[in-house]
Design a protein around this nucleic acid. Sequence first.
RNA 1: GACCCCAUCGUCUAGAGGCCUAGGACUCCACCCUUUCAAGGUGGCAACACGGGUUCGAAUCCCGUUGGGGUCACCA
Length: 468
Amino acid sequence: MTVVTRFAPSPTGTLHIGGARTALFNWLFARNKAGRFLLRIEDTDRARSTPEAVGAILDGLGWLGLDWDGDAQSQFDGVQRHAEVAQRLLAEGKAYQCFCTPDELSEMREAARREGRSMRYDGRWRDRDPASAPSGVDPVIRLKMPQEGATVIDDQVQGEVTVANDQLDDLVLLRADGTPTYMLAVVVDDHDADVTHVIRGDDHLTNTFRQFQIYRSLGWEAPAFAHVPLLHGSDGSKLSKRHGALGVGEYRDQGYLPEAMRNYLLRLGWSHGDDEIIDTEHAIAWFTLDAIGRSPARFDKERLDSLNAHYLRHADDGRLTDLVMTGLAANSARNIADEALNRLIMGMPGLKERATTLLDLTDSAAFYAQSRPLSLGDKAAKLLNDTTLGHLKGLRDPLVELKEWSDEAIEVLVRRFAEDEGLKLGKIAQPLRAALTGATVSPPIFEVMRVLGQEETLGRLDDVLGGI
RNA sequence: GACCCCAUCGUCUAGAGGCCUAGGACUCCACCCUUUCAAGGUGGCAACACGGGUUCGAAUCCCGUUGGGGUCACCA
């Protein structure tokens, strides 16, 4: 039997990282089993669902590289089918019509609350003749839950979970307006799509008992369930916006790489021995449900940063250059010369070694792309005084005459110059860095000079030397 | 409140009765390397929530306590 998993978000907001992790686990499991990974948009709540949210979810999944099989389904398209199933259950006597008014129900809840009981529907219409129904009240259809015994779920993550059936009340299948509830819709959709493994957030665990009974009443085989613990904020509280529950799109905008995000999300609640850096190929090969932890994990930005820095260092130079160019173009609103592009590609190995996010990679790369004269930062400007400018002036001529413009040749020349002047290398390297990059921090200075090229290097030197 | 789930360094985790003097990673600190900043290397700080059992032996099994989370809708 081929494994079928699905990700079923409701389109009421962005794809936040908790949802992204659920999607990742489903995707990984399906790929590991050479199965299918489906996407279903649970949009039956017409008031809260928006096309923008659907777009955000699709974009987020696309960015993360989580491709789904077939077309994304809309749950709303199945309302007809859902209603038919509910009617079938009614006809078979496994469900019944309930004519309670909203007021009656809230009274029931109120009473239960007062008596410190669990708030459950008391089943007052379960065995009552519909003929005795009050006029003017549209009925809902409720499922007849078993009243004795217990329901047991053999969860792939949580283990065997049991709940006494007297804890379960007769849930609503079809609303008074004829639309299906979520409980009915998921069951029908998962069954119709031949879903074999339902991997979803922990918050659905207790709902599963109810859904399990719907499967049973319908005579359908229930899929395997795997409830993964929810993500928490950095302080252990429920994940909220201020704790990092941003949409994945916002992480993209903050300069994170999708592969870093994937690795980070994977290791949150899942492990494979001591492995930390796990590429997608290995993630697919190694992923199993039983390695998912049972306790909730907290979101930790520093860990994400560290992973991102790692993937940045190992990313392809051409790809990073494209990404940086986009950022640079957005910043300067100016076209970037071919020359600058070349420098960016050549300088990328030294640049990416030092960056944490795409944003600071872009910042630190800017000096390569800038045209003369460079604007100097405060610290850099401070480094250039009469003394240091004097040194740079002295270095200029030998630089002009240098025939071979390589890291090594430049280094030999500069070192000899410093030695001749009785200076420590740093005394000449830092002013040089300031003049050439406009900053006090950069990739190794000889590498910078090589990438800049002889002409540009001398030009930038002349720019700061102009005054003397 | 009722029901369900969870509990190892600050964080993510390894650990499935003796291999544990509890390992790795992130963070932090020190040192090395060094033209800056990183990266890298070496070393360090740091945990089995608590209380009872079971056992020759428990981080691992059982019970309780405490703490955290989730669910209790004609939302999904």
